[in-house]
Design a binder for these strands. Structure first.
Ligand SMILES: [Zn+2]
Ligand SMILES: [Zn+2]
Ligand SMILES: [Zn+2]
Ligand SMILES: [Zn+2]
Lengths: 159, 159
DNA sequence: CCTCGAGTGATATGTTATTACATTTCTTGG
DNA sequence: CCAAGAAATGTAATAACATATCACTCGAGG
């Protein structure tokens, strides 16, 4: 599993590992890793890209695990809450966390051409934003950092 | 007009000034600063906070300037495109730019309690995100930076 | 066995955004 | 000025994303 997601990797292995890690973490924290929650995470890990809630729901529905929006939104809420999945605000979409082993502030590189999403990390109060927060007395709790542009594959195929 | 929006300022003056600046910039760049576009910007400047597209549309509709969604979305697209307004991804909302005189990468401090939004600036490729982009060959074109937390007014009134 | 709370199933609804096409207005070269 | 093309607008319909609510199930703890 690479830091930025534009390289090859052993995909079947990373799916399996991430699921096992999630299961272990839920056990440790007494969280219910129910079939729907597990399957939603698995779908996101398998696809290995950002998916809309209704895309995930379509997969669930085809498997008879619930066909109504609340099913998937509840599962996503749980997974996001506990750091297994991140929401990509720019895309109204969700992606499995690439660094599930530790707490972190995620940041994303999003290709505007092929929609590939790579996750990296950043600081909660970096650069001028932290300065502005300190100056004004604003208390930062969460930061969304999402860069849009062209991934290595798509540079050259574009204007 | 303050850098971060949690302080007092001469509001009527800042609305007027910003509108005049926008008009001048459009003239210089041969852009059509049409009545709808002007009024949408004015509404955002007057409210001086983030507004949803449909909130703006309701104001327009009450004034007979168009009652269908595309009216306001087209105006917002124009204003965002040319830097007069920014979209706040976390809120699916729009706010007039606080620094319309120069090009910049906006960053926002968003109070989760009172929904106040303050705009500051940042760099296109700051910190680890820039490093990750360079390492992987990703070409950043736009960055969304939005911090959520508590503004000075709301700290203390919360848990 | 009973109760409570988390999770799920199901219906309905709310909110945000886009597509499509007809029409009007503006701009510009002749 | 005038015609042709570009830009903007009017309008209807629909797509995409998200939440409210209530009934039901099931397992843990008393
Ligand atoms: Zn992550
Ligand atoms: Zn790409
Ligand atoms: Zn700005
Ligand atoms: Zn506040």
């Amino acid at each position: 599993m690479s830091t930025v997601g534009f390289r090859q990797h052993d995909h079947a292995h990373c799916v399996h590992t991430a699921l096992a890690q999630a299961e272990a973490k839920c056990k440790a924290k007494r969280l219910q890793f129910t079939p729907v929650r597990r399957r939603v995470l698995e779908i996101l890990l398998e696809k290995h890209k950002a998916m809309g809630a209704y895309d995930i729901l379509a997969v669930l529905a085809a498997e008879g695990m619930g066909s109504q929006p609340p099913v998937v939104y509840r599962a996503l809420d749980f997974l996001v809450q506990h750091g297994f999945v991140h929401r990509i605000e720019q895309l109204n979409a969700y992606a499995a966390c690439a660094h599930p082993t530790h707490d972190h502030v995620p940041a994303f590189l999003i290709c505007r051409s092929c929609k590939a999403v790579a996750e990296t990390e950043t600081e909660l109060t970096q650069g001028r934003l932290g300065v502005a927060a300190n100056t004004s007395g604003f208390q930062i709790e969460r930061v969304v950092v999402e860069a849009e542009g062209l991934c290595p594959e798509c540079i050259g195929t574009q204007a």
